[in-house]
């Protein structure tokens, strides 16, 4: 609304309009609540970075892990917010399985069926363990279940994060 008011005040001179736009948004990452673009097209978006930190945390806490991590990959601000925001899951399974084409092996299906939150690792790909550290850092998990293909016994780690 501020922007549209400022736009009304600014005349058609391009130079002047540029100046107004620069003063409007001190932080370019925080979108204004005005959803009109310069050419009058409507944009449907939510100004998530304009929300207070504790509300951003609340929104993150309602997202499944994969969506949280995807949201963290949107931009630097969200990456930082995500990394400081707590996870709330009861159980997380990490399962290593052989890679069979594009379909899930029985083992992966088992994990997906039995655990609401499961991370499936494929044997022939290399992974960074950073994501486990990232999740564990802020997690409130009752049980972290790691099922490796070669070891027939499952290892359970009860965490007290």
């Amino acid at each position: 609304r501020l922007v549209s008011a400022a736009r009304q005040n600014a005349d058609n001179d391009e130079e002047e309009e540029k100046e107004v736009d620069m003063t409007m948004s001190l932080n370019p990452d925080i979108p204004s609540i005005d959803n009109l673009t310069i050419d009058g097209e409507y944009r449907d978006y939510f100004p998530i970075l304009a929300l207070p930190k504790h509300i951003q945390d609340l929104v993150f806490s309602f997202l499944p892990i994969m969506d949280r991590l995807a949201l963290a990959g949107v931009n630097k601000n969200l990456y930082k917010i995500e990394s400081e925001s707590k996870y709330y899951v009861e159980e997380l399974a990490i399962v290593e399985i052989p890679f069979i084409g594009a379909s899930l092996s029985p083992m992966a299906e088992y994990a997906v069926k039995n655990y609401k939150h499961s991370i499936v690792l494929f044997e022939n790909k290399s992974y960074s363990s950073d994501f486990i550290r990232r999740i564990a850092h802020n997690a409130s998990i009752g049980t972290l279940r790691i099922i490796a293909r070669d070891s027939h016994s499952q290892s359970n780690m009860n965490t007290s994060f």
Binding site: F46, A70, L71, G73, V74, K76, D130, F131
Partner: peptide
């Protein structure tokens, strides 16, 4: 799609993007 909904630009460097991809390889 998230960038579209939230109208946010990607401001990571190529190196940072590679790092995030590595981190999220499992999903």
């Amino acid at each position: 799609e998230m960038r579209e909904i939230l109208q946010l630009e990607c401001d990571f460097t190529e190196e940072e993007l590679a790092e995030i991809r590595k981190e999220n390889a499992w999903c």
